[in-house]
Design a binder for these strands. Structure first.
Lengths: 147, 147
DNA sequence: TTCAATGCAAATATTTTGCAATTCG
DNA sequence: CGAATTGCAAAATATTTGCATTGAA
């Protein structure tokens, strides 16, 4: 994936070395359409780089987050999964069945949120917005799961 | 606090017993204006009920959440703090300095979110919105912190 | 009196740290 | 070669479970 290469370039640009472990982790996370936990990254990346240690996954994710290349995703099931970060100001729409995540634009919401803050004497500096639902592929499947 | 009494009534109504430990935990959480972690609840509630165990705090919070009386709050610093739940459909506005939380109304957002989902082939079933900023009291303080 | 609830201790799970060996540049 | 990076083992945290005792109804 092109994104994967770009991340490696970014790491290098910030003085980090390009190691086998990092390449494997980057490859996995950069190409995932759903948020992955450290252990999931570990398992997936070991097929490409068997000597990988879980600690290195933690440390690499930390650096990728610091560089703004990935973002932590909070869900009911847990808050320690990571996804490639969107460009600009975007919000997440996550499938509750398969975990697939897509970003959507929310620029027009900022003004609304500032107004809400005003009404309570707050200055709003950040907002978190996530939508949960079912993606096109999973909508028919859910009925099947239940029956 | 009146809310505290109401929670105890709810617990009883669902077949749970009203014990000293539960009264202490309920009292602390129901009257808090900011989200508290299990350990914070534990420390605060022990002044009223010294024999309290941390495990009981976990178990009580679990029941309160199950009854919809409290809700888990996710923040940058952690995702294991609880706050009294709002009535109806409300969202959180949290002060980044003192932690004070207030709810605001978000009914009008539902239609907008459904439309966003549509554009991506999703059926939106839930949404999650939180605003972060500075409350009236903390706005002047922040400048002082920095200088 | 009965069984839910408790608190302790121990088990799990998750994340972080110390450190000697390895490897990128 | 030298410093950054790695993986292991161990430590530190956070949460859950087993179980004998206690106490609410």
């Amino acid at each position: 994936m092109a994104e994967s290469q770009d991340w490696l370039t970014q790491l290098k640009a910030h003085g980090y070395r390009l190691t086998g472990a990092r390449r494997a982790v980057v490859q996995v996370v950069a190409s995932s359409a759903r948020a992955l936990t450290p252990v999931e990254v570990y398992d997936a990346a070991r097929t490409a780089y068997p000597a990988l240690g879980l600690v290195t996954v933690y440390r690499t994710l930390e650096k990728l987050e610091e560089l703004g290349l990935i973002q932590r995703v909070h869900q009911e099931q847990g808050c320690n999964a990571y996804l490639p970060h969107a460009q600009g100001h975007q919000h997440l729409l996550i499938c509750q069945r398969c975990g697939r995540a897509v970003y959507f634009d929310g620029d027009d919401l900022t003004a609304l949120f500032a107004r809400v803050g005003d009404e309570h004497g707050f200055v709003v500096r950040e907002h978190w917005l996530q939508l949960f639902g079912l993606c096109a592929k999973c909508q028919p499947e859910v009925n099947r799961d239940v029956s």
